[in-house]
Nucleic acid binder design. Structure first.
Lengths: 276, 276
DNA sequence: CTGATTCATTCCATATAATGGAACAGCGTT
DNA sequence: AACGCTGTTCCATTATATGGAATGAATCAG
């Protein structure tokens, strides 16, 4: 419908394995496991579908589902299939507008977009994935929602690699060992050794490139941002289609991206630092 | 920053009382109660603040918070304050893109916008509030996220009144009795009797108007949509600033809005009906 | 239309997880 | 250095979730 060059769909990745931070333990863990199944489902899920996906006895699952519904986290469609509840939308609206990093980065993203004219992203590292928090785009091409909140692998995105480069080296190493690499394009980094090597370069340069490693025909230049204690790492990027913007242009933007990221880091330190 | 005429902020309403569907009972209920407090907080909430807001003993609250964090539903900012977790953004992205009603309504909203040139909304009734699921807007003026997922009172919005009119009368009556009316503008409906009276008109006409009842200077024309069993009711609306669009113009659009809503209802019946 | 079968829901004794008081640790303040 | 304020950990107790079995509803075959 719209002229977005980047795929408009939600996670077409063939990687079906969940990158959960926590095990499905405890009452809460089991509850979000149910939400997770519903969220990741591609076809409408009815009760029996959930049952085989979750593997809980019917009575148990039924009560879990009931509780989720009464909390508004889950809902039943008229055709008996389950969908995520509207309460999640409410929460997300707050999660987004109340996010301090997004708030701090916002003007810098706008400025960077102003300078380059291309799409600017803000992403945060969440375990092994990058979650996009914001984007600034020239035309109202792609619908925002299709991108914000979406997760992409960290090893084949500019923001992801930038974020990894901001982690303490042993932390980064530990995460890399847990990555299940998948070739999204012919340029995708395929193993941990190659990724570690590239991260060394990224650390030295303060700049990461995605050379059509995630989506064919899309490349980007990114720089890391972080909080003082590295409990938060993320990145910003300028993304463009390679048919229109040459790699040489990206490298020219590198300084702008690095400068913008540095400015964001300074703001984070001031507004969220230990002495805030 | 942008030229949005409708307020860009999240819920400035003075109504602080929560419109919870469920009591804070059960492990899950207590967990979302914590999320709710964080979501509704206006200043940064630290552990101490949560403690007084929730009223749980420190040990208990600490574990609840820890569990929420390990599930990614909550996170700690570097300055020790809590924020909603990124997992909620991921879930919401799916809740939105996977929402059947939104999906079905989408082309009709686009067509309605094409015809009127003004902002078109899709909202769903959730207990006593309307939650906006989608909007189509001419310029990329207001950021989508500031609107989608937001909740507004049902008694002073076009979509809300339209949705109420689609409920079985006793259900509507029961909900009206629970509304805490608040005068947002001088035109806001102030009591249940007035609302019931207006709902009768809306049922007869199939059209609801918001005559600057929520935001001064903003009015809209809306029509209800629903599922066959009324487990879902909502509405669509065309919204405009009154300085630019006269009431007479809104009444001229009423037929278009009603027609669009009817088309959506037909699609819902076909795609989500009992024999789907 | 009837009977058989599958699936969803309810119930309740049991197993499990959440609770909260108390004791501990970290840190800034007096 | 001792105090007070917050946040964190521990563990016996208590409340909650669990899941097998029974019931009810819906679907399908004959």
């Amino acid at each position: 419908m719209e002229a977005g060059f980047r795929q408009d769909t939600i996670d077409r990745n063939p990687e079906k394995g969940r990158a959960r931070t926590a095990p499905d333990t405890g009452t809460l863990g089991k509850a979000v496991a149910v939400l997770d199944v519903v969220a990741r489902a591609e076809r409408p899920m009815r009760f029996r579908d959930l049952r085989e996906a979750i593997g809980q006895p019917p009575g148990t699952l039924h009560r879990q589902v009931s509780n989720l519904i009464s909390e508004g986290l889950l809902q039943v469609n008229p055709d008996q299939s389950y969908g995520l509840g509207l309460r999640l939308l409410q929460f997300a609206a707050r999660a987004w507008s109340g996010n301090r990093f997004r708030e701090i980065a916002e003007p810098h993203l706008a400025a960077l977009h102003e300078k380059t004219g291309e799409t600017v992203h803000l992403g945060v590292l969440s375990d092994l994935e990058v979650i996009y928090l914001d984007k600034v785009e020239s035309r109202q091409a792609v619908r925002m929602h299709s991108q914000i909140g979406n997760a992409s692998p960290c090893y084949c995105t500019g923001v992801g690699k930038a974020a990894l480069s901001a982690l303490p080296i042993d932390d980064a190493k530990a995460r890399i060992d847990r990555i299940a690499f998948h070739r999204h394009t012919e340029h995708t980094i395929a193993d941990g050794a190659a990724l570690s090597a590239e991260l060394a370069d990224i650390r030295a340069a303060g700049i990461a490139y995605d050379r059509e490693e995630h989506e064919p025909g899309i490349h980007c230049v990114a720089a890391p941002i972080w909080s003082h204690d590295r409990s938060f790492v993320g990145g910003i990027s300028v993304t463009a289609p390679s048919y229109r913007i040459a790699m040489a242009q990206l490298t020219q933007w590198a300084d702008d991206v690095r400068t913008a990221a540095a400015a964001i880091n300074a703001d984070i330190e001031i507004r969220l630092g230990p002495r805030a």
